[in-house]
Structures are given as C-alpha cells and as structure tokens.
Amino acid sequence: MATSRFLGHLESRKNIAGSACGFVGLVLTFTGVAGPYWPVVVAGLYGAGALVAPPERPPLPDFPDPSAQLDELRGDFERLGHYLADVELPPAASGRLTELTALLGALLEPGWVADALAADPEGVHVVARAVRQDVPEAVDSFVRTRWWSRLTPGTEPPERHLEQQLGLLHEEAGRLAAALRETEAGRQETHTRYLQDRRQ
C-alpha cells in the first residue's frame, strides 16, 4: 500500500512539475547563478512547481450505460410479471393492470423504442420506479387491505384505490410515451428542414 502510494506520488503532476522546476535550479547551480544557497534554490523551485501544478483528477466512476440499465430493468419487469400472475384481482383492476403492464412492456421492448427511452434518463427513472416500486406496492397494499376489509365489512372497497392508482400510473407512462414520440417527431422535422436548407 505504501509502495503504491509512493509510486503514485512519483507519477503525479505535482512531482513532475516540481522535478522540472528543481532541474532548473540544478542548471542555475551549475552555471554559478545559485551560489552557495543552491540547496535552498533547488528545493524552493521544486516546491513552487509542485504548488502551481494542476491537482490530480480522479477517474470518473464506471457507471453502467443506459442500455445495460434497461437490460437489468427488463429482468425486474419479468419478475414483476411472475408476481402479478399469482395475484387474484377484481376484473376492473385486472384490466387496468393489463393495460399498464402492456405499455411498460412496449417501452422496454428491445429496439428503437428502448433506444429512445435509454436516451432519456428521467424516462428510465419513471419506468424503473413503476416496475420496482409503484406497481408492486399498489398490488401488495390491495391484497393486505382486502384481507382486513373482510373482517370489517362496510368500509371503502380497496379495489377503488387500486384502480385509481393503476389509472394514475398508466397516465404517467402514457405521458412518457407521448414525450418520446414528440422527440422522435422533432428529429424527423429537423431532418426535413436540413434537407430543405440543402436545396437552397
């Protein structure tokens, strides 16, 4: 560990700049300019060079690229599908859930749609949050609340909340799909203008 730190210091910008300035001090010494104070001159120039050298820049963290994030998200979406297949839902809620998962699946489908999604970090976050948090939480809270509702009849049916939650999530995913479509349409319009300008 100490050896690697020492080697790192030898290769650092500060040491290289300080050594270059210290070499100038040796040249001044051999030419007689530094006189009897040459050790102070060499050390001072080395220190000055080390001070003015730019600081070391640590390497950027190696985060996975967006396509790798979507691959992982597709695996989570598949696991979510297995979980939802084991849950019994009322017909209305089941229909809304089917619409929502179909839209999420279309956004995650490998190809140009997923490529457009990968270019939108906020969009990836929206889909990831729906898959990993919002949908499982909505369904699980319905299952737990439904059990308590059987013990306390007359309370508000939990499926109403589930249907509302799934509807809101579908609207959010729909807004994301519309935004991605607008981005693609903008690219198309930009290319049209480029071709028109090229004729002039």
Rank of each mutant, 00 (worst) to 15 (best):
V135T: 08
S4Y: 08
L28R: 01
G81Y: 08
A2C: 05
G186N: 04
D115L: 01
P157T: 09
P90N: 10
R144G: 11
T101D: 04
L166W: 02
A138P: 09
R150V: 15
E172I: 00
S141K: 00
G95I: 05
A116G: 04
E72N: 07
P91Q: 05
E159D: 14
E72P: 00
P158Y: 07
R13N: 14
N15I: 11
G186L: 02
R132F: 11
Y83C: 05
F142A: 10
H170D: 09
Q196P: 01
E88K: 06
V131D: 07
A128Y: 02
E189A: 11
Y37P: 05
E137M: 06
R146H: 13
R129E: 14
V126C: 05
G154A: 08
S141C: 05
L169T: 04
W147P: 01
F6P: 09
P157E: 12
F142P: 11
S141Y: 06
P55D: 15
V113W: 00
E159W: 01
E137D: 13
E184N: 01
L28G: 07
L162Y: 03
L168H: 09
E171N: 01
G44E: 07
P58R: 07
A68E: 14
G123P: 01
H161I: 12
L180Y: 02
T101E: 08
A177G: 01
L176V: 07
V27R: 00
W147L: 14
T155I: 07
T152C: 03
I16A: 12
S12I: 14
G95C: 06
A53W: 07
E172S: 04
T152A: 09
A2H: 13
L73E: 05
R150Y: 12
R129L: 12
